[in-house]
Every structure is written in C-alpha cells, then in structure tokens.
Nucleic acid binder design. Sequence first.
DNA 1: CCGATGTTTCGGAATTCTTCGATGTGATCG
DNA 2: CGATCACATCGAAGAATTCCGAAACATCGG
Lengths: 110, 110
Amino acid sequence: MAETATSPDPGLVDALRALSNPVRLQLLMWLREPERHFPLEEAIADPAEVGVCVSHIQARAGLAQSTVSAYMAELQRAGLVKATRVGKWTHYKRDEQRIARLVATLGETL
Amino acid sequence: MAETATSPDPGLVDALRALSNPVRLQLLMWLREPERHFPLEEAIADPAEVGVCVSHIQARAGLAQSTVSAYMAELQRAGLVKATRVGKWTHYKRDEQRIARLVATLGETL
DNA sequence: CCGATGTTTCGGAATTCTTCGATGTGATCG
DNA sequence: CGATCACATCGAAGAATTCCGAAACATCGG
C-alpha cells in the first residue's frame, strides 16, 4: 500500500537539509577517509573504529569550535554520523548504512 | 589527477540546496509521473514530452503563482529540470540524465 | 492595437540559517 | 578539591530563505 506518494519523507528532507551546507557536506566527505584528512599521529583512538574527535575536525575546518560542534550534532540528528565519547573526546564516524540507504532512497523516490 | 577532494563540487551543493526544501522536493517528485499527479485532460501538450505547465503545478502545490515560478526556476538553475515554452505556457520537465548523474555522484563522493 | 491570460521579476515581511563568543557541563590530572 | 581540557549549549548579529502581492513581460484572440 501507500503507493501514492503524498509528501516527502521528513527524514529524507532532514538529511538533504543537513547536506545542503557546503561545510557540513565537506565534513561528511572528510570522514570517508579519516586517516587521509586528519593527523593519524594525534589520534587518541582508531579513526576507522570510533571516528574523529571534534578538535581535529575543527582544526581542519577552520571554524569556531561551537560551530563545528553544532554542525556535527546536526549531521547526527540527520542520521548521517554516529557519536562515541572516549574520555573527554567525542568522536564522530559516518553511519555508512544510513548513508547508503539515503542514496538508495534518492535513486528510487527522487 | 585531482584525486584529493578539496572542497565539494559547487554544482552538487546547488542541487542539494534546491532539494533541501520540502516543497521543491515534492515538485520534482510529482514530475516523475506527471500523468499521475496532474490533470491530463487539461494538458495543452504531452506531459511526457514537454512536461507540466506552471499553472497546474501551482494548483497542486497551493502556493502563490510567483512562488512556484521562482521554485521551478531554482530547480532549473540547479540542473534538475528543463523548461520549454509552448505558447504562453512554460512547461517544466525533469532532466533525468542530470538527476541520475547527481544520484551517482552522491553514491561515489558522499 | 486591446484586453485577457500565463509567467516572470521585484520589493518586502517573517522566518530560518550561519557563525561567533561566552558560558555551562563533564572528564581528567595533580 | 581545583585547574584544565574537550565539548555542548546559549544568545546574538548578520545573511539567506520562504513566501506573498504588485508590477512587468510575453503571448494570444479578437
């Protein structure tokens, strides 16, 4: 059922809105290969495992810490990244499943 | 060359920004099956051929005519639709190639 | 040429976004 | 505990978006 699409899925719109900002899009793209875009030497934990901490993302982005923090929270609300706290560091990692599902949904409904 | 992505493709951001609005996203989705979402009887030309005119889109959307016109122009600038004027009616049709390429790009770079 | 119709463009009001600095919170170390 | 570090949240200023009605533009019919 529900074959007559009435209005766009809110989750889809949220994701698109999160991605519509060049900085946030860039952050998500950097996280595709963390070891490529962030200093591996300074990593407190395996990037592939837990992700990259806010400080490193902030240093790369060149924006205020509060801005980067808010952006990562927004990407998380949109379901594009997952957060893990390791000590005092919050690490953000891509949610590849959700991202893949988003692209698939776009291919089908868009 | 150019294998190290520095900043997101502006065209990609433009498309995502155009799609980040629920109304514009809806308009593009309606245009997937024009004959399904717009009155075929009143069509001045084959929807599959030239698309749907602004009046019909406006009636379905329930927004001011100037708003719908501006939204369609925005979708066109983002490369998601193509416009064709038939008499006094401007018809908008999806640019399926560009849309498919956008989804493919998202799958690869996002 | 006139008037009507479809569309675009302009100007503006309300809202949201972007980004910052300041402040708050939680964890660590001495 | 107290200081400090990493991060989150708050409050605010400026910019952009959303949406409208009015006016301008284009096209057709008479």
